[in-house]
Design a protein around this nucleic acid. Structure first.
Lengths: 236, 236
DNA sequence: GCTTCACAAAGTGTCGACACTCACGGAGAG
DNA sequence: CTCTCCGTGAGTGTCGACACTTTGTGAAGC
C-alpha cells in the first residue's frame, strides 16, 4: 500500500517527532513502534522490554525509555512501575468513549468550519470530496480511508484551534487501527460518500447545525461499523 | 494556604505519578516543577536546564529529562531539540482555545451527569455546594477555588468516562494558574454560588439542556473574568 | 561604535554500568 | 500430584561519562 504507508507516516510523525530536521533516536523508535502497533504486527498484551527494543534499534535503553513514555501518554503502551511495558489493550468501553468524544469534538470542528472557512478552504475540501468519490468508484478501501483521514485533518486545520487540534490528533491516533477496520465493512463507502457530499454542501450553505449533525453521524457510523464487525478487543 | 496546598498536590498527583506506592524520582520532579510553574515561582520563558534541576534535586539528569518530557506533554514546558527547555508561555489565543474547549467538554459532562447521577452522587454534589456557600460567605477565595475544582472533578467522576476525564484533567491543569486569577476578581463569588445552586437543581430535575448551558456559562464566566482582569500573558 | 568571527563554557542526547526488583521454574514439603 | 518456597536470570530505574551542539562573550575587523 504505497499511498497508505506514506500518509500513515505523515499522520504519525505530526504527533511524534517534534518537527525537528533531525529526529532524535527516541522519536524514530516511538514512530516505528506506534506503526507496528497500529498495523497489528504488535498485539495488545505483548511485552515491550526496553532491552529487546534497544537491541533491535541498536541503541541504548535511554531513547527507548523515552519513546515508551511518549507512547504511554498516547495510550499505545501500558507502563506499570518496575514491570515490563506492554502493548495496551483497547477495551470496548474505551472505544465507545473514544468515538463518542471524537463525534462531539468533530461536531465542534464543523461548526468552526462553517464560521471560518474561506473559498480556498472549501476548494481544498471539494478536492478531497472528488478524491473520495473516485476511490469509492474504484472500491479502493485503503485509498478511501486515507483520503478520509485527510478530510478530517483539513477540517481541523480550518477550525484554526491548536488546542482542539492536539486533542483530536491524540484521539485519532488511538483510533487509527479501528478506523481502518470500520471502513472495510462492506457497503460502508457509498453512504459515507453521500454524507460527505451533503456535508460539503452544508459548509457552502453555512448551515452549522446540519454540518455538525452530519459530521457527528459520520463518526458514529464508523463506530457502529466497528461494533457490527464483531470486534471486541479480545485476543484470538 | 493549608487547604489549598493539599488540594493542589492531590490534583496534580493524579496526572503525574502513576499512582504507584513509591513514586519514581521523575514523578517527584515533575510534580515539584509543575507546582512551581502553577504557583508562579517559575515564570514563562525561564530556562529549565536539566543540569541545574538535577543538581537541585540531587539526582542525575535521567529522571529530570523524563520529568521534563511529561511536563512538555502537559503543556507546561517547551522543549526544542538541542536547546534548553523553557517554561511555556501561555498566549492569550491559547487561553481562549483552552476555555472554549473546557466549556464544551464540561457541557458534555453535565449532560452525562443528568443521565447517570444516582442519589449518592447528587448528595456529594450537594455537600460541595454547601461548602461553596460557606466559603463564599467567609469571602475565602482560596477555599472557594479548591472546592470549585472538586465540584468539577466530582461531575467528571459521575460521568464515568475515563477518556473524557483524561482530556479534562490535562486541560484543567494547564488552566489552573488562570482559574485562580479568575475567581480572585471582585464580585465573582456570589453569581458563581447562585449558578452552582441552579445547576444542582437542574441535575435533580434531570434537565440536561439547562444543566449543560449553566455549566458552559460558569466556565465561560471564568474566562471572561480573566480577560477583564487585564491578563495578557506578557511578561512584566 | 557596530558587526563578524572564533573560541570557551555550558547543555543536550546517548551510552554502558550497576543495584535493586520481579518473574519463573525447580526443589522440597505435604 | 499439588502447593509453597527460594534461587536465578531477566528487566527496570538511576547514575556518571562522553561526544557533539548551542550559547555567549570578547577580540579583531570595518
Amino acid at each position: 500500500m504505497p499511498v497508505g504507508e506514506a500518509a500513515r507516516q505523515l499522520e504519525l510523525s505530526r504527533t511524534f517527532g517534534r518537527g525537528a530536521a533531525v529526529p532524535s533516536i527516541a522519536d524514530e523508535i516511538a514512530l516505528a513502534v506506534a506503526t507496528e502497533i497500529i498495523e497489528g504486527r504488535l498485539s495488545p498484551g505483548d511485552d515491550l522490554s526496553s532491552v529487546d527494543l534497544a537491541r533491535s534499534f541498536s541503541s541504548s535503553r535511554t531513547p527507548v525509555r523515552e519513546a515508551l513514555l511518549v507512547l504511554e501518554r498516547e495510550g499505545f503502551v501500558e507502563i506499570t512501575a518496575r514491570r515490563r511495558p506492554r502493548v495496551a489493550r483497547l477495551l470496548l468501553r474505551e472505544v465507545r468513549e473514544l468515538y463518542n468524544l471524537r463525534a462531539e469534538l468533530y461536531a465542534l470542528v464543523s461548526r468552526a468550519v462553517v464560521q471560518k472557512a474561506g473559498e480556498a478552504d472549501l476548494e481544498t475540501l471539494r478536492g478531497h470530496q472528488r478524491a473520495l468519490e473516485a476511490a469509492a468508484a474504484d472500491d479502493d478501501v485503503d485509498r478511501y480511508f486515507w483520503i478520509n483521514v485527510q478530510f478530517r485533518n483539513t477540517e481541523a486545520d480550518i477550525a484554526r484551534d491548536a488546542t482542539l487540534r492536539r486533542v483530536l490528533d491524540s484521539l485519532g491516533l488511538r483510533a487509527l487501527q479501528l478506523r481502518h477496520l470500520s471502513l472495510a465493512q462492506p457497503g460502508r463507502l457509498e453512504p459515507s460518500v453521500r454524507d460527505h457530499a451533503r456535508l460539503l454542501q452544508a459548509y457552502e450553505d453555512r448551515d452549522a447545525e446540519l454540518a455538525s449533525a452530519l459530521t457527528q453521524s459520520l463518526v458514529r457510523a464508523g463506530h457502529t461499523a466497528i461494533e457490527r464487525s464483531g470486534w471486541t478487543g479480545e485476543e484470538p
